[in-house]
Simulated assay, not measured.
Amino acid sequence: MQTGKAIQHAARLIREGKLVAFPTETVYGLGANAFNPDAVANIFRLKERPSFDPLIVHVANLEQAASLSKHSDDRIRLLAEKFWPGPLTIVVEKNERVPDIVTSGLNTVGIRMPDHPLALRLISEAQTPIAAPSANKFGRISPTRAEHVANQLPDVPYIIDGGPTTVGIESSVIRLHDDGFVMLRPGAVSSEEIKKVIPESHIRIEKEDEFHSPGQIKSHYSPQKSMFLGISDFNDSDLSNGGLIAWGTPEYASKFKKVEYLSKTRNSEEAAINLFNALHTMEAADVEFIIADTVPEEGIGIAIMDRLKKAAYRHRNNAS
């Protein structure tokens, strides 16, 4: 765990317009002063991130959240009382202080309060909201450990090492509308939980060419090796040069060269924590391809399958 002096140093870098990678409970973020467009531009450059993909802004308190939003909305307070700090991002109409580069030119901004003591200390010490996507090259595997950041982004000026993350997948993202909300990206907070606080929109269709949230692109979280979902198409294949990301302890695991277990007990929360580290491990392993077991699409399993489908999309789409 980093010392107070390390946090003070990182906060000074943020105030000076530099980038800092820092831990949250979900994944590691690559942060910059959200009100400094030049600093935010360096996030896009270092990540090789396309300009159409907006960033989430992280805050340490409701006052900072209010400094980003165009309108006061009691629903933000209700959601914050229930889910913040925590893995929920709320997309609202932004005010003029938020640079267009943060939101990719949209009139909305995603805001969340991370549930990690180092992240909250960094934001408070920097005295500014921090814009931060995941600290990895665009489209690649998200980082859940400091070494994942260092491997993909060796030029990042400073990394705060907070150990492994405790949720393991990115936040749920909702967009507020006059009649409720829509889920833009699944995560640890489910629609059912949110509906207990505010209603869900009855009918709402987002424009396909507008990405109001990160993680909406079909191909994302991708390893640099061929990846497939499910074992069913490979029952008669030679699996001895492959890697398996396993759900439970399947008998066919012995056929693979390397196995990483999401959860031997089929615990979805444990699987979420282990997901991205398993992908990083397989990407670095001496295997020719990766097969990932599917998990039940209920609860946080919906978010796990969202990440696995997007991780496998590039190879599946190129092969078809």
Rank of each mutant, 00 (worst) to 15 (best):
S268D: 01
I245L: 13
A285F: 01
H220D: 13
G301T: 08
V287H: 00
L275C: 09
I245T: 08
E210S: 11
D286P: 00
L275I: 12
S213T: 07
Q224N: 15
S213K: 03
E288I: 02
D209L: 04
A278F: 04
L239E: 00
E269W: 01
M305H: 07
A284D: 12
I291A: 00
E269L: 09
V295F: 02
M305C: 06
N235A: 15
D306H: 15
I205C: 05
R266H: 10
K264M: 09
K258L: 07
E260C: 08
L239R: 00
K258R: 12
F276K: 06
S213Q: 06
Q216S: 14
A253P: 09
L262F: 10
Y221K: 11
S232W: 05
G248N: 07
E206Q: 13
E288P: 00
S240M: 01
E210M: 14
M227P: 05
A303C: 07
M282P: 05
P296G: 07
K309F: 08
E288A: 10
L275K: 10
T265M: 06
K218L: 08
A253C: 10
E208D: 14
F276P: 05
N235R: 14
L239N: 00
E260S: 04
I245F: 09
G301S: 05
Q224E: 15
F289A: 01
K310S: 11
L262C: 06
S240I: 01
E269P: 00
M305S: 05
P296S: 09
N274Q: 12
K207D: 15
E283G: 04
E283Y: 02
W247H: 10
V295L: 04
S263D: 05
K310H: 10
D293H: 10
I231H: 02
F256Q: 03
F211M: 13
S232N: 12
F234Y: 13
E270Q: 11
H212P: 13
I273D: 03
K207G: 09
Q224I: 11
L262H: 07
G230A: 11
A271E: 04
L244G: 02
V295G: 01
F234H: 12
P223K: 09
E260F: 06
L308E: 12
K257S: 10
P214M: 13
